[in-house]
């Protein structure tokens, strides 16, 4: 038992756990819609795309949350502009903005040699550097994101089913899609302190993808996703303490390992059931 409790004995370790859990739950809830909408590539591009905003904020001394929000806005506007003004598919538009924003972030970083450490913590997280103020900001953002996600349940479910059908059902898919982008941006911005902008993607996609393998309904998918995210954060921090590895990266790695273990488990279960069915038929 000591092995599991020892990593959370000190204040900064407890804050790392609370920050990680908040980020994990927020990402797991929004991630369900991301996976159901088939927007994982967008999510990946998005977490890279906020880099120049955060880099500029650090360089010019304004809020990194504001910088990330501005970068997210530029990213979404750019993707929509390409999508509307050309016949290119959305994934091409996302790819262009992905590379463009990432490159811009690196260009901004390369202009200053003094904050490479801060940028590293933005990219890969600094779980043990989370302050009380960070937790309060993160908590407020998480409450808004989770509440909005449930308020939008019906329009998001219709949109995940079919955009055209959502239109005929009066579910306003354009507005719903825009609000989903805001939710994704908020989840990324609210998580980068605890788990980093790059590694938050592991919590955005890993737990919901695993939940999709286990659940037969969307509400159950939410339950599984949140439980897996919370478990990944906790186990990731425990393992990082004992192994001396990076906290945020270990959390993300646990989430992905759980996905593969579940995938292999469900494949084995299906194989056994198919073999039994074949045996019964014979």
């Amino acid at each position: 038992m000591t092995w599991f409790l020892e990593p959370f004995a000190l204040g900064f370790q407890q804050r790392a756990l609370v920050g990680g859990l908040t980020a994990g739950v927020m990402a797991a809830v929004v991630g369900v819609w991301l996976v159901l909408r088939g927007m994982s590539f967008f999510g990946d591009a998005f977490v890279h795309g906020v880099l120049p905003g955060i880099a500029a904020a650090t360089l010019f001394g304004f809020s990194p949350y504001l910088g990330a929000a501005l970068a997210a806005l530029v990213m979404v506007a750019g993707i929509e502009f390409i999508h509307r003004q050309s016949s290119l598919k959305e994934d091409t538009a996302i790819g262009l903005l992905f590379v463009g924003m990432m490159a811009l972030g690196v260009v901004i970083i390369s202009k200053s040699k003094s904050f490479s450490g801060a940028i590293t913590s933005i990219l890969f997280g600094d779980a043990f550097g989370v302050t009380q103020t960070d937790l309060i900001q993160q908590g407020v953002l998480a409450a808004v994101v989770i509440a909005t996600s449930f308020v939008l349940y019906r329009p998001l479910l219709a949109l995940s089913f079919s955009r055209a059908k959502a239109e005929t059902l009066g579910m306003r898919p354009g507005l719903t899609h825009a609000l989903l982008l805001v939710l994704i941006a908020a989840a990324v911005i609210g998580s980068f302190q605890a788990v980093g902008t790059l590694l938050v993607f592991g919590l955005l996609v890993g737990p919901p993808a695993t939940a999709a393998l286990l659940a037969r309904t969307v509400p159950r998918m939410f339950v599984w996703s949140v439980l897996i995210a919370a478990f990944s954060v906790w186990l990731g921090l425990v393992l990082s303490y004992h192994w001396g590895t990076a906290g945020a990266a270990t959390m993300a790695l646990v989430a992905i390992v759980i996905f593969f273990v579940t995938l292999i488990g469900s494949w084995l279960r299906r194989s056994v059931l198919e073999r039994r069915a074949t045996g019964t038929a014979a």
């Binding site: 159901l36 019906r154 479910l157 995940s160 089913f161 579910m171 999709a212 037969r216 309904t217 159950r220």
Partner: peptide, 15 residues
Amino acid sequence: TPITVREVVAMGCYP
């Protein structure tokens, strides 16, 4: 997509 037949049909009530 984890949506059952009943949930799909129930969407008809959304308007």
